[in-house]
């Protein structure tokens, strides 16, 4: 079993970090993982993305032209990555910043007002954690408690932000779970 997710957004929205926490969680569960950032001209162009692969088997290609899932935080990312998804995947969409709807009826769409929720919790900067929580809630790619453990480790050194990030992760997770249940 192998799942791949592309995480994309503006530089500064924290998609790289969200991807690292996801990959780290996978690794701690004894899975094979790859975290592959986009690098090159895109790095300077204002958008950032990374691909996370979590697998029970050794991972062959680290290049995933058609990921199962996508986690998009801004409109250019939606336009670029959602069309590449494989049918049956999960697209988590930050509807705080994305007003258009994806033109796909063969993927499960989870809408999350990530910026709004993060702002309510305490910091718009934590919208990436709302997204990550929602993604894990909607897919169960990793158990939530394992994700929480790694997130806490990642924010160890920033006590103030840690509690906000953890709360955002929890809120996102609940939304994801609800979407999974079909609400």
């Amino acid at each position: 079993m192998q799942i791949e997710a592309v995480l994309a957004g503006f530089g500064g929205q924290g998609v790289m970090l969200a991807g690292k926490i996801l990959a780290q969680t996978g690794m701690m569960l004894g899975k094979e993982v790859v975290w592959l950032p986009s690098y090159g001209p895109e790095m300077r162009g204002g958008t950032a993305n990374c691909t996370v692969i979590i697998s029970d088997e050794p991972i062959a290609s680290p290049i995933i032209p058609h990921p199962r899932d996508a986690f998009v935080m801004n409109r250019p990312s939606l336009e670029k990555f959602v069309p590449m998804m494989r049918p049956g995947g999960v697209a988590v969409i930050n509807t705080s910043l994305i007003t258009v709807k994806p033109e796909r009826d063969d993927v499960k769409v989870v809408n999350v007002t990530a910026n709004k929720i993060a702002m309510e919790v305490g910091s718009a900067k934590s919208s990436n954690m709302v997204m990550l929580g929602a993604y894990v809630g909607a897919t169960d790619v990793v158990p939530f408690d394992a994700l929480m453990k790694e997130a806490k480790k990642a924010f160890q050194k920033k006590a103030k932000l840690a509690s906000i990030n953890i709360k955002c992760l929890e809120q996102g997770y609940k939304l994801g779970q609800a979407a999974r249940a079909g609400h």
Binding site: K20, M27, V33, V34, W35, L36, P37
Partner: peptide
């Protein structure tokens, strides 16, 4: 190649 340098793996 650049991928070996840039990607994270366990």
């Amino acid at each position: 190649d650049g991928m070996i340098g840039q990607m994270m793996e366990p």
